[in-house]
Amino acid sequence: MKFGIMVSEGPYTHQAADTAYNFIAAALEKGHEIYRVFFYHDGVNNGTRLTTPPQDDRNIVKRWSELAEKHEIDLVLCVAAAQRRGIADADESKRNGKDADNMAPGFRISGLGQLLEASIQADRMVVFGD
């Protein structure tokens, strides 16, 4: 089955990012396809490479980056949500006249259309959030 995923909550504060990650890992292991993971609302905070959790804790952002690299999963941060919350890649940063960027490897920034397109293309759209 082809799954689309939306993550609506930020890492650490909320379990959504962990549950989504575990769901995706289990789905891949069973041979399912992950069409896209779309990060919305505070979920875009899953995509900042500046995240520095304590050493004895999981690194949620790094875990996403590794998952993307290993399984070629499309991790998309909503541009409007990311701009509000200060998450930017080099292009976005430049476009908005900022002095830094912070997007983690394996992610990309794109529009809400990517959420809709994933909803249409996937066999099931699964939302992780409140």
């Binding site: 409007a80 809400l112 809709l116 249409i120």
Partner: peptide, 19 residues
């Protein structure tokens, strides 16, 4: 919370997909 506002943004953008 911002959920209602950002939900409305999805609906407006989503309209272009004619679903």
């Amino acid at each position: 919370t911002i959920y209602a506002l950002e939900a409305l943004e999805v609906v407006l953008i989503g309209a272009a997909f004619e679903q």
